[in-house]
């Protein structure tokens, strides 16, 4: 996984609550067997009309938010289906950081596996950032120092955010979880041997 670096970009304001993963990437795009290429279909039904034409007033279609790497949005973002196609489409579009007051569990975890930083801030601070995203294009997300810098009413401001240290380290170092776990393979074998003697029925049958 790519290492997470400091982001300097504008930020997309999307002030809707309970955005579900069906809305992030609708089912017709789940037929792929690849992780890449989903960015153009991100928020498909909000972004394109029935004839595949861009809906001009949707935020992603507005010129000033082109190439943005930050998304600021409403609470309970990413609820619903577990599809990792949601963070894949977000990452493929180029968004590396999301800010909301809460996320659905599965989506939140999926972000870290794909180099996306999902920041949690209190609702009043999210509202401030939404306003800033409308007014100015200069945001900076500094994961190392857990800080977002922005401009509101022509004044430079910054906010600190909390993040689990293990998750932070994974993003900064671009760690592959599986490699780490496989380093503990002797623990896994020990567990299996113990479980097999305690609960032998778990190991006794296979469907054919």
């Amino acid at each position: 996984m790519e290492k997470f670096k400091k982001i300097k970009s504008n930020a997309i304001p999307l002030p809707m609550v309970n955005i579900d993963t069906d809305m992030i990437i609708p089912k017709q795009f789940l037929k792929t067997i690849k992780r890449t290429g989903l960015g153009k279909s991100l928020f498909y039904e909000l972004r394109y009309d029935e004839n595949d034409k861009k809906i001009s007033n949707f935020v992603l279609n507005q010129d000033q938010y082109k190439d943005s790497q930050i998304l600021i949005t409403g609470k309970n973002f990413g609820c619903g289906s577990s599809r990792e196609h949601a963070p894949w489409s977000i990452a493929d579009y180029g968004i590396k950081c999301i800010v909301a007051s809460s996320y659905a569990d599965i989506f939140y975890n999926n972000c870290f596996k794909n180099g996306i930083l999902p920041i949690i801030l209190p609702e009043d601070q999210v509202q401030q950032l939404l306003q800033a995203a409308e007014e100015s294009l200069n945001f900076e997300v500094d994961l190392e120092n857990q800080k977002i810098s922005y401009i509101l009413n022509n004044e430079a401001k910054s906010l600190k955010f909390d993040i689990d240290p293990a998750k932070k380290a994974c993003l900064i170092e671009g760690i592959d979880d599986i490699g780490l776990t496989l380093n503990k393979v002797s623990h896994i074998s020990d567990f299996e041997n113990k479980q097999k003697s305690m609960n032998p029925w778990l190991y006794s049958r296979k469907l054919t």
Partner: peptide
């Protein structure tokens, strides 16, 4: 429920 990266993690480990 888990994401696809976790599916891979379970398959491998």
């Amino acid at each position: 429920g888990i994401g696809t990266s976790e599916v891979e993690h379970v398959l491998a480990t």
